[in-house]
Simulated assay, not measured.
Amino acid sequence: MNYWIIKSEPEEYSFDDLVKDKVGVWSGVRNYQARNNIREMKKGDLLLFYHSGKNAGIVATAEVVKEAYPDPTANDNKWVAVDVKPKEKLNQKVTLKEIKKHDELADSQLVKQSRLSVIPLNKEEFNFIINLSQ
């Protein structure tokens, strides 16, 4: 199993929208590194759902339910999408500022490449962030 952070502007697509939809298409990614990360996602992988923008932070967990396929919002097949389903809202939002306070996360791709929209995590980083939300 792999672990990821996926980011979305809540005005565009929020975790509440995903809950309402029950399954969402994670599409529209136009960064090559983020696209390559999406290609690596497997069914059952766990996700941290990050709301970007002025009230940014990790707000929930989700799960990959369909592996990479051609992005229906793209004009060519070099871009991919995955389907995701909601799991649960976190008890409290975990901000990047909070994450940067902890040495345990200093080497995380979230800290090193915080602007990337799809970021891999290891199991320890994922669990540490979940614990921060308690």
Results as ranks from 00 to 15, higher is better:
2 N>L: 08
4 W>Q: 02
6 I>E: 04
7 K>S: 04
8 S>H: 02
8 S>L: 03
9 E>A: 13
11 E>Y: 12
13 Y>L: 10
14 S>C: 10
14 S>Y: 11
15 F>G: 06
16 D>F: 12
17 D>Y: 08
21 D>L: 15
21 D>T: 09
24 G>P: 01
24 G>A: 11
24 G>F: 03
24 G>S: 09
25 V>D: 10
25 V>E: 10
26 W>Y: 09
26 W>Q: 00
27 S>I: 00
30 R>F: 08
31 N>W: 04
31 N>M: 09
35 R>D: 06
37 N>F: 00
39 R>V: 08
39 R>F: 12
40 E>M: 11
41 M>V: 01
41 M>N: 03
42 K>F: 07
45 D>L: 00
47 L>W: 00
48 L>D: 00
50 Y>L: 03
51 H>T: 06
51 H>F: 07
51 H>D: 01
52 S>Q: 06
53 G>E: 13
53 G>L: 14
53 G>A: 14
55 N>W: 12
55 N>I: 13
56 A>E: 11
56 A>S: 15
56 A>M: 10
57 G>R: 00
57 G>N: 05
57 G>C: 02
57 G>A: 06
58 I>E: 02
59 V>H: 02
60 A>Q: 05
60 A>M: 11
61 T>W: 08
61 T>V: 10
61 T>D: 10
62 A>C: 12
63 E>V: 10
63 E>S: 11
63 E>F: 06
63 E>K: 11
64 V>D: 03
65 V>P: 01
66 K>T: 11
67 E>T: 08
68 A>K: 04
69 Y>V: 01
69 Y>N: 01
70 P>F: 04
70 P>L: 04
72 P>C: 09
72 P>V: 09
72 P>L: 09
74 A>D: 12
74 A>P: 09
74 A>C: 14
77 N>M: 14
77 N>P: 02
78 K>G: 10
79 W>Y: 11
79 W>H: 03
80 V>I: 12
81 A>H: 00
81 A>K: 06
82 V>C: 02
83 D>G: 04
83 D>C: 05
84 V>E: 01
86 P>F: 00
86 P>D: 12
87 K>V: 15
87 K>R: 15
87 K>T: 15
88 E>S: 14
89 K>P: 11
90 L>T: 03
92 Q>G: 14
93 K>P: 05
93 K>D: 07
94 V>C: 02
94 V>K: 00
95 T>D: 03
95 T>P: 02
96 L>W: 08
98 E>R: 14
99 I>K: 01
99 I>G: 05
100 K>H: 08
100 K>V: 08
100 K>Q: 12
100 K>G: 03
103 D>C: 08
104 E>D: 15
104 E>T: 12
104 E>K: 15
105 L>W: 03
105 L>M: 07
106 A>N: 14
106 A>E: 13
107 D>V: 07
107 D>M: 13
107 D>R: 14
108 S>I: 04
108 S>P: 07
108 S>M: 06
110 L>K: 09
110 L>V: 09
110 L>H: 03
111 V>H: 06
112 K>R: 15
112 K>Q: 14
115 R>M: 10
115 R>Y: 12
115 R>Q: 13
116 L>T: 04
116 L>Y: 04
116 L>C: 05
117 S>K: 04
120 P>H: 07
120 P>S: 10
120 P>W: 06
121 L>G: 00
122 N>E: 04
122 N>V: 05
123 K>M: 07
123 K>Y: 05
123 K>E: 15
127 N>Q: 12
133 S>R: 02
134 Q>S: 13
